[in-house]
């Protein structure tokens, strides 16, 4: 069995593998920055101009120096933007967190409560209707919901903005600014919520259904505990585990998960940044984002592992369980 230290070591090792992969991966993309940037333009580069360009962009100094630079928090400079990659990531991150994190958190919490309640009313009309409704919703792809929402609320009704994260370059007070950000957030957030809520709901419900028949619930009931306490303090604990797992998993899609929605609503974020970087073969930026997202997932999983142990005392991941 692994100890805490061994466990951390395993994570570190994985992180190292990821750093290595992120170091190698972009290089496997066909094409290079100079071709992507200059080949399809009005500009015609002479051979020596091209050579000079390539030389200027040459940053590859082997894995060792890549690792050293990372350790110094020097994530390189974007070819296209000519600013540090870390700045770009840090500027895009709040938008991603707002949209993805917001949708994710809301979908999980709403899904948890609704799923638990539905399972509790197993077989009733409410359960049937809600499961039916959610199943239908689950079948609509984000592209579809996004465009339908856009069509109705932005195009036909004109109630909400058609794109962007905020009205740019206006002098707003804090309240106005917040309202403006929320107005821009509404449609993309709703799209993601509609896409993710059903999954959380169905998972919470299915997990709850699994424990409903178990004896410890009868014990709890026999002790005369109020139903809401039995439901949440005893039964729903078992739902938290898969929900937490799903929460962690979904964070893995933080960067690319909202790409379609970001594209439809021209919403800023890491997904768009990565997608454009791939198109432009902006290698330092690709590396940076891929690495950032991998490490973030790893970190979140590490946190979640310890959360599992708290959620379910029977799971002692690091200790000598059983």
């Amino acid at each position: 069995m692994l100890t805490w230290r061994g466990h951390l070591l395993a994570y570190l090792l994985t992180a190292l593998v990821m750093v290595y992969l992120s170091y190698r991966l972009p290089g496997w993309l066909p094409g290079d920055f100079v071709t992507a940037m200059y080949a399809d333009s009005h500009v015609v580069l002479g051979a020596e101009q091209e050579a000079a360009l390539r030389e200027r962009l040459q940053v590859d100094g082997g894995f060792g120096s890549y690792l050293l630079a990372l350790a110094r928090l020097d994530w390189g400079t974007s070819h296209a933007f000519r600013v540090p990659v870390s700045d770009l990531i840090l500027n895009a991150l709040p938008w991603t967190l707002l949209l993805m994190g917001g949708a994710h958190l809301l979908a999980t919490m709403l899904g948890f409560v609704a799923g638990v309640e539905a399972a509790w009313r197993r077989g009733g009309r409410i359960e049937r209707t809600s499961v039916g409704g959610m199943t239908v919703l689950q079948g609509v792809p984000e592209i579809g919901t996004g465009v339908l929402l856009l069509m109705v609320f932005a195009y036909h009704l004109g109630w909400l903005p058609a794109g962007g994260g905020a009205t740019l370059y206006v002098d707003h007070g804090f309240a106005e600014r917040a309202l403006d950000v929320l107005r821009h957030l509404a449609l993309p957030l709703a799209t993601l919520l509609l896409a993710w809520f059903p999954g959380n709901f169905l998972l919470a419900r299915a997990s709850m259904v699994l424990v409903l028949g178990q004896s410890f619930l009868d014990t709890a009931r026999a002790k005369g505990l109020p139903p809401i306490r039995v439901r949440y303090a005893h039964a729903a604990r078992n739902v938290l585990l898969p929900m937490a797992t799903r929460f962690g998993l979904r964070f893995a899609f933080m960067v690319t998960g909202a790409l379609v929605v970001e594209t439809i609503f021209s919403y800023p974020g890491l997904g768009t940044l990565l997608f454009n970087a791939i198109g432009a073969r902006d290698l330092p930026l690709i590396q940076g984002i891929v690495l950032f997202s991998s490490l973030a997932v790893l970190g979140i999983n590490l946190v979640l592992e310890s959360v599992y142990a708290r959620l379910d005392p029977r799971v002692r991941v690091y200790g000598r369980a059983l």
């Binding site: 195009y155 004109g158 058609a162 794109g163 962007g164 009205t167 594209t263 439809i264 609503f265 021209s266």
Partner: peptide, 19 residues
Amino acid sequence: GRLVYLRAGQAIAALRNRE
């Protein structure tokens, strides 16, 4: 007085909303 360029994927909706 000012000139602003925006990323807007949905040209028709953005025009219509006067964005």
